[in-house]
Amino acid sequence: MNAVKISNLCLGYGKKTVIKDFTIDIEKGQMVSIIGPNGSGKSTVLKSLAKLLEPQEGIVYIGKNNITHMSNKEVSTSVSILLQHNTYPADISARDLIYYGRLPHKKWYQTKDQEDEKIIDWVIKNTNLEELQYKKINCLSGGERQRVWLGVALAQQPKILLLDEPTTYLDISYQLELLELVKMLNQRSDMTVVMVLHDLNQASKYSNRVIVLKEGQIVADGDPKEILNKELIRKVYNVESRIYYDEVDGHPIIIPNKNNLGGERI
């Protein structure tokens, strides 16, 4: 069963096309990373899966449904996205913000009920926010705030969770904590995860499928153990590297050591 099916998708902004003729299937329960250099269209693809961007051509299916024919409300009950940039009222508490994640499941006249409270409690426990839940969001650190936004996305109880560079603003311990959490949820609940990552080693370690993009085209797609190699890194990033394999689970570890762009690096 496919969670997502994308066929011949073209995406862009205005007249500019960023993604051309993009076709993939994503199985239910997969943990997929999209990687590639800046401007390769990673985030663009991700946004189209949450209907934040309409296809110029081609079709995105969420389950069996064409996303273009789904209402925002229908999409938001099965797909949730953790964005890179967020705005929020300064004085909202973490718990109240996480409650907003329940709104897609509610009719306009329904208010917060027991079940919502239960789900919010579960989310807060799993995102490790018990101590912070009643604090105002602008009193939290960047990493804590990112966990709150993940909490919003989880409160939506998505079948598909999208993460747009979730680790960018976090220090290394929060990066690991967030990815471990997502991996645990993925294994435990069969939630499909699609994330855009900058760090090749995180993609290698935390996903069972990596899609490599360059200039809007798929260069490689598959198990990181099989596809991540020196030739690929050179081709996509123009970087020479050494590759080691982890002793425990055998995932490739990439050590970049020289770029081939020419010219002096400052």
Binding site: N72, V75, S76, S80, H85, N86, T87, G101, P104, Q156
Partner: peptide
């Protein structure tokens, strides 16, 4: 009051 993108993703 949230970003437009998150508002869309909240239905």
């Amino acid at each position: 009051l949230l970003s437009d993108e998150k508002a869309v993703n909240l239905g």
